[in-house]
Simulated scan of single mutants.
Amino acid sequence: MSHGTSRWTRFGFVRRYPFDLATVSISTALATLIATSFPSGSLLRLFVTVPLALFFPGYALVSVLFPATERDAGEAAATTAERRPRGIDVIERLGLAFVLSVATLPLIVLALPLAGQALTATTITTTLGLLTVVVAQLGVVRRLRTPDGERFTVAPIANLKSISGDRNAIATVSSLLLGLAIAAAVSTLLVAFLVPASGGGFTELALYSEDEDGELVTGALPSEVEPEESIPLTIAIENNEGTDQEYTVVVQEQVLENGSVVDRTELRRIEASVSDGATGSGERSITPTAEPGETVRISVLLYEDDPPATPTTESATEETHFWITVTEP
């Protein structure tokens, strides 16, 4: 008898589990798996990344903050002594979900380096997905602890009636405007993700190095080397010019005084052919020629076709650099 009661209690919990938060949790887990497994150019990865970054985290957080449904005007004014969770309507819930999602992502980007984690697409996506699922479960607890008559539930027809029913005109117009603003913002972001830029092509240059796990990361190049020690680095060129391109990369050691280059030494020259819409990358090593105790700038200069006789930062199509100090022996 007790076994049957326990079984029905478990099924009862499953029946009471909020449908919207279950959907958010499962969708977040699937989106995280796809975003970390599929290549960066995958269209499926792009589609799942949009709700993962712009909706799911904020919706989970809103569910924790507002587990109750909206109170009507008569109920809100009935008594000031009544204690119950504050609720919001569906449009406000969706609007806050979007806003809080946009605010969550920068916080994760700031927190990961403080926790000693590298800033990569995998770590950011995994952290965002895990945080969303955990917060969604807190939202489930908050909502199930709210009395049945006050608990927020997903009922599309009832929610539409609450928007257009007994609410005053100002509240109705405000909800409609908020809904239009959300739709416009999401549409703009989708267009920015899916439609190529119309202002002409562009080329991007980036430097990477390997971390302890062998994953390529930015911002981890060494700041000091011993004399005659080589520095391994990966140079990546992303071609979005609209046609296949021929590039030349010049790696240059520059000595600066008062912000001006007074001496330059070419360390390496690389020829590269990159197809339109592709990213070409390759690992190279460079060896600074500076004297021990000297600090120099290692500039990576990118040119379309052939560089000038004296390559400079100003003449390069793209440029990136890092500083290195040759230590005393």
Rank of each mutant, 00 (worst) to 15 (best):
I231L: 05
I157C: 04
E283S: 08
I124T: 03
A115I: 07
A192C: 01
P196E: 11
A29F: 08
A158G: 13
G219F: 08
A183W: 00
T243A: 14
I298N: 05
A29H: 10
P227G: 04
E266A: 14
F19P: 07
L301E: 08
G214C: 00
L180T: 12
L178M: 14
I324S: 01
A111G: 10
A76L: 15
S40C: 14
T122Q: 06
A103D: 00
N239S: 15
R143T: 09
S101G: 04
T23K: 08
R16W: 11
G139T: 01
P51D: 00
T9K: 11
A103V: 03
T295Q: 12
E70D: 09
E215W: 01
S2G: 05
L301K: 05
T127H: 07
Q117K: 01
V64D: 08
T126N: 03
T28M: 06
Y59N: 00
D306T: 14
A181E: 02
T218C: 07
D306C: 01
V251A: 07
A103R: 00
A309L: 03
L65K: 02
L114D: 05
P288V: 05
I237S: 06
P307Q: 05
I270P: 04
G219P: 04
E70C: 09
R84K: 03
F56T: 01
S2A: 07
V64G: 03
L176Y: 05
D72E: 15
E246Q: 15
Y247A: 12
P329K: 13
V102L: 02
T120F: 00
L100M: 08
V140W: 04
I237V: 15
F19C: 02
R16Y: 13
R71T: 09
R45N: 14
F202R: 10
E92A: 03
N159G: 15
R264D: 07
G4R: 14
A169G: 10
L30A: 12
G87L: 02
E210T: 04
E291A: 08
R268Q: 15
N168V: 07
E238L: 11
S25N: 03
F322V: 11
